[in-house]
Design a protein around this nucleic acid. Structure first.
Lengths: 228, 228
DNA sequence: CATTTTATGTGAGAAGATTCACATAATAAA
DNA sequence: TTTATTATGTGAATCTTCTCACATAAAATG
């Protein structure tokens, strides 16, 4: 029985083929910065502009661009507008992507109102929750019951779901979503979701992020106290 | 003038020395899983238990432990309770850490109510916002004005702040926090904060996470359509 | 139009992270 | 007590990522 439990944990498909490379992660960073620079009226950027704004080195920016076949002017850097277009074409973001959001607890509600998504072409077409109390919301902010998941996934051709449900129900919700055709999940619960190999999962673990900073700070203080 | 702007962007101190290593990132993952397993009554774990629950390989778990001097029983795996203690001792989490939260917009409010923090020993001692409207909250949920930052940072010996303010004010808030003694920042705004080298910043970029999943899914679909 | 300046693009080397393979020790079984 | 089993611990090999150095081209200058 305990053995069975362990087995189950072990039977997880690793995402290897569709793992995001570091260079592509940074491409997203550059893109985010570029969107902001562009809205500020900056028409031309250099590798060191992007590097400084994202915390990497200029040669890394160029290397990353080189990897994805993006080229600038040997002296004039990159034109903001065309670079933006190239980056967006690179990751199919030339149009808006529809996603759904499941779980309208505190975090879910915050995410549903998060203004920066739409700025980046991420459109939350519908939000869902099992709790009937959360469903009766104001007109501008409809929360659907899970029964309507399939309908809306189909209608809006949704591939990607944001999951912000309690950890106990995360796996169950995930299974349903996958059955209904979802192929990518952004998981805010602290459990590892078991999915078929054709489904991509990215985990956002808020506790871990904060813990890592706490650790770095205390490590730093320790080292500095050695010099006293 | 444009030149000046670029210069400013370039003058960012890179965190190199205190950059979190991948192995340590995973240690946080193991810890999170272990907390859950422990609360489920699991008394003994194996490298493959932790591996399966976090999505890495068993050898990597062992290698990570080895790097930080954590050892198990050659056949019996690891005792949950003592492993937990060792991990927590490793990153100074044997007691609760006090942090503050600045910016009580949608995201900030959600974070302030996020139940998993306290489970992991992260205690938000106070929340802050400039908006006086947000300050007059219910008794269980006080939001302080920025004027009281210094007082509370000193009183609770706070080193780490969560910053969830709009991107326009992020750098300004960050500067103030650093002046008041904050040494670690978890930044939810999409701007790169410029900080002295003795301050640690971790960025949580929600848009990027979602975009990366969208990208992976569409890339996958593209490849699969080749086989039709 | 030649020269200088400045940013890009990239090969080569270095550093870092992961996997493999297997010796080792603790436990269980005989 | 001896033997068999099973999980750990870690050097070596591999694979990935990053940095350095410099050739190269575009623009600016004289």
């Amino acid at each position: 029985m305990h053995k069975g439990f362990v087995k189950q944990l072990f039977n997880v498909k690793q995402i290897t083929k569709y793992n995001i490379r570091n260079s592509l992660r940074r491409i997203f960073l550059y893109h985010g910065l570029l969107v902001r620079l562009s809205s500020m009226g900056v028409t031309r950027v250099f590798s060191f502009t992007l590097a400084g704004g994202t915390g990497v080195t200029p040669e890394q920016v160029r290397k990353d661009f080189s990897e994805y076949g993006i080229r600038g002017n040997r002296r004039g850097g990159y034109l903001t507008s065309s670079l933006l277009k190239e980056l967006e074409a690179l990751f199919n973001r030339d149009r808006i992507s529809n996603v759904i959001l499941v779980g309208m607890g505190n975090l879910g509600q915050a995410l549903s109102k998060y203004g920066l998504f739409i700025q980046r072409g991420i459109n939350i077409v519908a939000t869902f929750d099992i709790d009937p109390f959360k469903q009766k919301a104001r007109a501008d902010d409809i929360v659907y019951p899970p029964e309507r998941l399939q309908e809306i996934i189909d209608r809006f051709h949704v591939n990607v779901a944001i999951v912000a449900v309690p950890d106990i129900s995360a796996q169950e919700v995930c299974n349903e979503l996958v059955n209904m055709g979802i192929r990518g999940i952004v998981n805010f619960s602290p459990v590892l979701l078991k999915v078929p190999e054709y489904v991509v999962v990215t985990n956002v673990n808020l506790s871990d992020e904060i813990e890592s900073v706490i650790w770095s700070v205390s490590r730093m203080k320790e080292e500095q106290s050695l010099f006293l």
